[in-house]
């Protein structure tokens, strides 16, 4: 019996340079996992490989989502299966409005007849209020001229719109002030539940005060070096990231 979301011995490289060196990780349905690690440990590579970025080459291992190896699928097919990646650096698409983009994306995932434009818009407006995105953004071009914080809120808005069943957040917290972080976390927590899996990739423990992980993994040199349950998260909460740093600092700095 396979798990909900399972990464086995994943190896990947970019432009011939190996980044992931046999990474394994399992997220059960309803769980929230955090993945931490120093710069260069392969966090963003993992996020991109999970979603199928064509620049990365997978050289070994598998990623199973509900028992199916998704490495064979195009990014759009992964999205339609219920996978979602909140990007660290969302790109701008000039000339494409937020409203039109979200409708396209929603229709692509759920089929065109699922929701009428008016209903869709109503739901979207409510979601926008929830994550504190002004309604005027509907007619702005996607991420074009958005501030860092606005882009991150837009990622969460997309996540609420597409209602994925398994989401990966790639350093969504970096560059956010505390208020924005609270709003973003609130948006994510709206989705957290029995039918939802979440992998939060982060550099700082700060976000884990708002999104509470069941498991924590430390990524070093393209592999999960250390994992723990709620007790590790609790200790992290009490003693901060410094504790992780002290425990694994040497390897982390060497990576």
């Amino acid at each position: 019996m396979s798990s909900y979301f399972e990464i086995n011995e994943l190896k990947a490289e970019i432009e011939g340079k190996p980044i992931l060196n046999g990474l394994s990780l399992t997220v059960a349905k309803g769980e929230t996992h955090a993945l931490m690690g120093p710069n260069g440990s392969g966090k963003s590579t993992l996020a991109n490989v999970i979603m199928g970025h064509p620049a990365y080459e997978v050289t070994g291992g598998e990623i199973l989502f509900e028992g199916e190896n998704i490495l064979e699928l195009d990014p759009e097919e992964r999205a339609r299966k219920g996978l979602f990646l909140a990007f660290q650096y969302p790109v701008a698409v000039p000339g494409v409005t937020v409203a039109s983009f979200l409708k396209h994306a929603h229709d692509a995932v759920y089929g065109e007849k699922k929701l009428k434009a008016a209903e869709f818009l109503k739901q979207l407006r409510a979601d926008m209020d929830f994550v504190g995105v002004d309604q005027t953004f509907l007619n702005r071009y996607l991420n074009d001229g958005f501030s860092g914080g606005e882009k991150k809120r837009m990622e969460i808005l997309q996540m609420l719109t597409l209602r994925p069943r398994m989401a990966v957040m790639d350093e969504t917290d970096s560059g956010l002030d505390i208020d924005a972080l609270k709003v973003v976390s609130m948006g994510v927590n709206k989705l957290v539940g029995a039918e939802f899996g979440l992998l939060v990739i982060t550099h700082y423990e700060r976000i884990l005060r708002y999104i509470h992980p069941d498991h924590l993994h430390v990524l070093i040199d393209g592999k999960v070096a250390f994992s723990g349950g709620p007790e590790l998260v609790k200790r992290l909460e009490e003693e901060g990231y410094d504790w992780v740093r002290n425990e694994f600092g040497k390897e982390a700095l060497m990576a």
């Binding site: 979603m51 199928g52 970025h53 759009e76 790109v91 698409v93």
Partner: peptide
Amino acid sequence: SEDQLFYLRSRGIDEESAISLVVNGF
């Protein structure tokens, strides 16, 4: 850009539609 197309595709939009969105936006 590959990143633009990947971004749109990661939201379920197929490659052809992604190109057409980017180009029509342009």
